[in-house]
Design a protein around this nucleic acid. Structure first.
Lengths: 124, 124
DNA sequence: TTGGGTTATTCCTTTTTAAGCATAACGCTA
DNA sequence: TAGCGTTATGCTTAAAAAGGAATAACCCAA
């Protein structure tokens, strides 16, 4: 008897994962991404850039740079900050900043739905 | 008369772009991504890892590392290589490697369609 | 047997990136 | 007025990633 061997189809969904990322770019570079949005959320929650950075184990330097970029790449700032006073100062989101978070999450839901749906038919 | 000023809605689609990437992960890390698939295509086209690397302005070292990873993270290799002989040796894709390219492009088409469609309703 | 071009692999250097440090200004509180 | 915690910014240092150089093995062709 003759056996014809052929490769068994490999179901990628079992052992492999389809992953992805998305971000919004301005003409000057990245405007909104996963890290930036998380940072915005922490600022909104904690009322301070430095506290937000600490909570993410990110250096204040980087956090400030990201926020500075976002503000400058937008016609209106996403974060307003004040120095001195009770607590030393702080920062809060503008309604544009809050809307940016909301917008990102709206896209994120669709994005994840797309990935998980598309992953089901991955046969290598 | 009283004017109530409100922020004009900013159409992100005009000045900003929704971008993204996707890749297939094995339990050990990235398995297939944009760069790896391009490398596979060049190997298929040129019949050599070093030629493929040159054509992408990638170092042979990195190209070899990527291919080595892909092969080891797959139950069957994607690239077969031989040393010595006419032309010094070479490499060619297995049918698993060819299928990987095809699979990636199938997902890519859907992915780009998703992004461009989703970008149309971006209002900040 | 020598040369050529490739695969395969290690080691070291360079570049890029991120983290850390230092300092000044601010404005409330005690 | 002194102190505190924050914002804001430049400069220095460390970590990580990419790049390049070097070497051995391979096998056909001349």
């Amino acid at each position: 008897m003759l056996f014809i061997t052929y490769r068994k189809e490999c179901d990628l969904a079992q052992h492999y994962h389809l992953r992805g990322r998305f971000w919004i770019e301005s003409p000057q570079g990245t405007f909104l991404g996963q890290g930036r949005v998380l940072l915005l959320e922490r600022v909104q929650e904690l009322g301070s850039i430095s506290a937000a950075a600490r909570s993410m184990k990110m250096s204040y330097r980087q956090a400030w740079g990201l926020i500075s970029q976002m503000n400058s790449h937008s016609p209106e700032p996403l974060v307003l900050s004040s120095t001195g006073g009770q607590g030393g100062g702080g920062a809060q989101l503008t309604h544009v900043g809050k809307r940016a978070i909301q917008l990102y999450h709206e896209v994120l839901i669709d994005f994840e739905a797309f990935l998980s749906q598309r992953a089901q038919t991955l046969k290598l």
